[in-house]
Simulated scan of single mutants.
Amino acid sequence: MNIAIVGSGLVGQAWAIVFARGGHRVKMWDGDPSAVGQAARLIEKQVSDLRAAGLIEDAAGLISRISGCASLEEVMSGADYVQESLPERLEMKKEIFARMDALAPPTTILASSTSSIPASAFTEDLAGRARCLIAHPVNPPYLVPVVEICGAPWTDAKVIQQTWDVMEGVGQKPVKIHRELKGFVLNRLQGALLREAFRLVEQGYVDAEGLDVTVREGLGLRWSFMGPFETIDLNAPEGLADYARRFNDMYQTIATEQTSTEPWSEAVIEKLEAQRRSILPKEKLLERRLWRDRRLMALAAHKKSAE
């Protein structure tokens, strides 16, 4: 299969690795002429790390399947599937999808990596709108495999199924979002947790590190291999319904304190920023991101060995 990556930033680079690792030919393009070359160098480093972690064997073969293009016309030529990963700006999405729709062969699937914008917001006026949808990853998708697949009201069901098949074929874990909603499912769940986390710090119940320890050494350990519904299903003698009936009143009481929709205040943002910078100076952020990716590689290797 011929894959086109439109946008060669961090997400585009990661998608290139996913598809090339899955055996597909990948072409990349970016509006910045120098970005594709920079992306190629970063991809080589990421692939080298994957090889060192034992997650791939033929690093050279993977790299050889990725190439850069000088124009949008070139990257779209002969593409079977397109993954757009440009910045999160609606007008930019509208413009690039209009151009891609005009250039792509009629059977080409046009997918966006957007993390919050529904496909209907930028595909409604396109002649080929039925082949447009969202395939929202978690960064980096070559280490975190879930992909949220969400069509617009007019997306062809066959396109959704084909995208699901493409994702399964390259080792991702697709999830179908049945109706459009802003932020899809993953970011809404993350947003709910973040809102409560900010509130607990703002009101003085815990500091940034204490909150992170609670998730990292508590909830996160179970969530690395099971979701919240399976978690509660196993946390009561008779399963999920038993848990819900035991703890419904407690959660209802807590929920009455979680009804605020106020934005995060500058005061709490500054408070958390100061706490995080005391733990991790800004100049060490990149080093820590690379550490995170190595830990994710180790976790991926562990989960692969347990399959």
Rank of each mutant, 00 (worst) to 15 (best):
N2I: 01
I3E: 10
A4E: 11
I5R: 03
G7H: 10
V11L: 02
A16C: 05
I17H: 08
V26S: 05
W29Q: 12
A35Y: 04
A35K: 15
A35L: 13
A35H: 14
A39F: 09
I43G: 11
Q46S: 14
S48V: 00
R51T: 05
A52C: 06
G54C: 09
A59F: 09
G61E: 12
L62P: 15
I66Q: 04
S67M: 00
E74D: 10
Y81E: 00
S85M: 08
S85I: 03
L90R: 07
L90N: 03
E91G: 07
K94A: 05
I96W: 12
A104S: 15
S112L: 05
S116A: 14
L126Q: 03
L126W: 04
G128A: 00
P141M: 02
V147H: 02
E148G: 05
E148M: 10
T155I: 13
K158V: 04
V159I: 15
Q161R: 12
Q162H: 12
W164I: 01
K173L: 15
P174K: 06
I177G: 11
I177C: 11
I177L: 13
I177T: 11
H178Q: 10
L194G: 04
A197H: 09
R199H: 14
D207H: 00
A208N: 10
T214Y: 04
R216S: 04
R216M: 02
E217M: 01
G218I: 03
G220R: 15
L221H: 09
S224M: 08
E230R: 12
P237W: 10
Y243N: 06
N248I: 01
T253L: 06
T253R: 13
T256I: 02
T256R: 15
T259N: 11
S260E: 15
P263M: 04
P263E: 01
S265L: 03
A267Y: 05
E273N: 09
E273K: 14
R288W: 12
R289G: 07
W291H: 15
R292S: 07
D293V: 02
L296R: 03
L296E: 07
L296C: 01
A300C: 07
A300S: 06
A301D: 01
